[in-house]
Design a protein around this nucleic acid. Structure first.
Lengths: 213, 213
DNA sequence: TGTAATGTTTACCAACCGGTCAAATTATCA
DNA sequence: TGATAATTTGACCGGTTGGTAAACATTACA
């Protein structure tokens, strides 16, 4: 038996799980920093601490590695939106959605950049995920938001563009981190910018969506 | 005489201007779509409709091409922020800043993606621009906004994060265009999403910043 | 322990990439 | 027109890249 991918479908060795984990971690590091085309298998191998042919023993191609990474990360990435609860208090729900997204940007910036790189370059590898699961989830939650607006619980607004606005403002702190740091300057060295951002964004969206008479 | 770059410092031929224009246009097309490392001189040459050595006759290296492109585009890209007028009506100024940024995202998405790619990958080629001219301009306009808030003309808020929020929400429509299209679906094929976005964002920011008693 | 399956590495390949060179072609202008 | 400078190209080079082949090492297990 020479094919690990085939073996995997039956039983997975302890070694297989460990090594695939190592590789995906290294792949995340490299792909998120340079994009797909800008990354090399050699770089990933070095970060993973193993030889290039060894990587290719677990993932037959660079694309397979990238695909496995995307699949593994996408779910986690969408969790905050999934958590948006139609039964909850609308303003509180949106507020905590923003907070969760911002925490993701702070704690998992590489995952954010992985998608950003991919989407920015035309999403050649994840078109199906965007048009399928992503669109479905957004459609569903957009309906929730629309219902809140209709019931007069928040201001009337386009739910899709509201979601886009929350995505972009929060992910900005992961994807464009160097720019944010450059503009804010040295004095904002720690994670303080995330707390400032949270305060600003919660206020912006809550005040911007509040119904007033 | 074999050095076009040297000749250029003295006099520029008609041909030189035309060809450099062609090359930079092609470079914008390619760099914005694949990032620096993901782009090849051959690709740019093909788009420009000339041979690779011919490109390298006008720009000695791939980096030189990229640098020239950044230099040419950066100014235009910052114009909307530069236009923010301390003497104008604050709410109207912010509203038209948003509108202008959104128009840029609609009309010049490649320029937006050029910077997005660059910043996303750690801004290896434009660090100086970020920490220099960009930071300076933002510092200046942040002061303007702070003054407006202090004078009670808009709600008190962190001006830097306000600027980040406007950048991210507007550029989102250029940088993540494929995602926006995928989520909105076929029915939003035209430019309608930009008008919807404008309506949503103007309302969000204006209501979010308005002073209420 | 032995042996078959699994895991790892060295050496290698063909394609690609950034860039050079020299020769050929075209524009400029006295 | 003719000579000189400017422009363009095909052939090429060394280094890199994704991926392979096969030998070697290790593990699992009867």
């Amino acid at each position: 038996m020479v094919l690990p991918r085939a073996a995997k479908t039956q039983r997975r060795t302890r070694i297989q799980e460990e090594k695939e984990e190592q590789i995906l971690e290294a792949a995340l590091e490299v792909f998120s920093a340079h994009g797909f085309r800008g990354s090399t298998i050699d770089q990933i191998a070095e970060v993973a601490g193993m030889s290039k042919p060894n990587l290719l023993y677990y993932f037959r191609t660079k694309e397979a590695m990238h695909r496995a990474l995307i699949d593994r990360v996408l779910d986690t990435w969408l969790d905050p939106l999934r958590a948006l609860d139609a039964e909850g208090n609308p303003v509180a729900e949106i507020r905590s959605y923003i907070r969760r997204k911002l925490e993701l940007a702070r704690d998992y910036p590489r995952e954010s950049r992985l998608f950003a790189n991919e989407v920015l370059q035309g999403a050649p590898h994840i078109e199906d995920e965007l048009k399928g699961p992503l669109k479905q989830l957004v459609d569903e939650k957009a309906e929730v938001i629309r219902a809140w607006a209709k019931a007069g619980k928040i201001a009337k607004c386009d739910p899709y563009h509201l979601i886009f606005a929350i995505w972009s403002t929060t992910q900005h702190y992961a994807d464009f981190d160097v720019q944010v740091r450059a503009v804010l300057g040295q004095e904002h060295a720690g994670d303080g910018r995330f707390e400032d951002a949270a305060r600003f964004l919660e206020r912006l969206f809550v005040d911007g969506l509040q119904v007033r008479e």
